[in-house]
Simulated scan of single mutants.
Amino acid sequence: MRFTTKGETLYAITLGMPRGQTAITSLAQPNPHERRRVRAVRLLGRPGAIAFRQTGQALVIDLPATLPTRHASAFAIDFA
C-alpha cells in the first residue's frame, strides 16, 4: 500500500488486485498519526462511496466484486 495526499484527501493505493476486504492499520481509530474519524471512502474509477468501518485495529474497506483495474486500486479517503 502506498499513500499520497491532495488537499485534505488521503489517497491509498494498493499494489496488485485486492479481494474481499483491505485493511489499513495506520488508520485505526484512534490512531497515533491522525485523531480524525474517516467520513467517506471512494474507490477511484467506480461511482459512489463504498462500505468501510474504522475499528481499533484498522480502517477496513469492503471491496466490490468487480474492481476498475487489476493492476492497482486507489481509494480516496476523506476525514470528518
Rank of each mutant, 00 (worst) to 15 (best):
A72I: 02
G7I: 09
A80F: 05
T14F: 05
N31M: 06
H71L: 04
T5M: 13
T14R: 05
F75Y: 15
M1C: 00
I24T: 05
I61F: 06
D78N: 04
I61C: 06
G20I: 01
G7M: 13
E8D: 15
A65K: 13
T55P: 08
A12T: 03
L63E: 01
R70K: 04
T9G: 06
I77H: 06
L15G: 11
R39L: 12
K6G: 13
A74C: 13
R2A: 14
A49F: 06
R35F: 07
R37H: 06
Q57N: 14
P64S: 05
V60S: 07
R36Q: 10
A76G: 03
M1V: 03
L43Q: 11
V38L: 01
A74I: 09
R19T: 13
A80M: 02
I61Y: 10
T55L: 10
V41A: 09
R2S: 10
F79R: 07
R19N: 12
V41F: 05
Q21G: 00
A28V: 01
A76D: 09
K6M: 01
R19C: 02
T4C: 08
A28R: 15
T55D: 12
A58Q: 07
L15D: 13
A28S: 15
A58F: 06
L67S: 14
G7Q: 12
Q29T: 04
L27V: 11
T55N: 12
I24W: 14
P32F: 11
A40L: 07
F3D: 03
G7P: 10
R37I: 01
R37S: 09
Q54L: 01
A58P: 06
V38T: 04
A65F: 00
R46K: 15
A49C: 06
F3W: 14
F52V: 04
I13E: 13
G16K: 08
T69R: 10
M17G: 09
I24H: 10
R35G: 13
T69H: 05
A51G: 06
I50A: 09
G16H: 06
P30G: 07
Q29V: 00
Q29C: 00
G16P: 00
F79E: 04
G7Y: 10
L10Y: 08
S26Y: 12
P68S: 02
A28E: 14
L10S: 10
T25M: 11
A65Y: 08
R39K: 15
H33V: 11
E8Q: 15
F3K: 04
T22Y: 13
G16W: 05
R46S: 15
E34C: 02
G48M: 01
M1D: 00
R35Y: 01
F75Q: 06
V60E: 14
G48F: 04
L63M: 01
R19P: 00
S73D: 03
V41H: 03
I50N: 04
G45F: 11
Q21I: 10
F75C: 08
Q29P: 00
R19L: 06
I61Q: 02
N31L: 00
E34A: 02
T69M: 07
R36C: 05
G45I: 10
T9L: 04
M17C: 15
E8L: 12
F79M: 07
A74H: 04
F52W: 13
P47V: 13
F3C: 09
T55W: 08
E8A: 15
